[in-house]
Design a protein around this nucleic acid. Sequence first.
DNA 1: CCTGAGCGC
Length: 135
Amino acid sequence: MAMRAAAAAPRSLRRLFSTSTFIPPPITAATPATPPAEPSTNLFVSGLSKRTTSEGLHEAFSKFGQVVNARVVTDRVSGYSKGFGFVRYVSLEDAAEGIKGMDGKFLDGWVIFAEYARPRPPPSPQNNGAPPYGR
DNA sequence: CCTGAGCGC
């Protein structure tokens, strides 16, 4: 009957769900998604307005912790803001408060994103850390 | 003046 044929169908489909060919994605390997950097006093702030200055960053983030240094990255040639910057707090706890206080908030009409900055490669002692265009 | 993802000299 037709009922027998229906009962035999799932058995052939079972090969598609077989665990022998199923390979789970490696979690420990490098993922294409951007992993959050480890906690540090350095904060990476993105989504800044083109008109936001380092002073504006310092003032805005000082409300949630003691800011040691704030810098808005600007283009060396044009001198205009690249739309992101960095904020350094005196401690990790202040940095955490700064993220929770400023991440996803508005600054100069733009939604900014605050997160821990990635470790930057140290300058080589060859050029004494001086800019390549200077002399 | 400024395009809008993105990691600084």
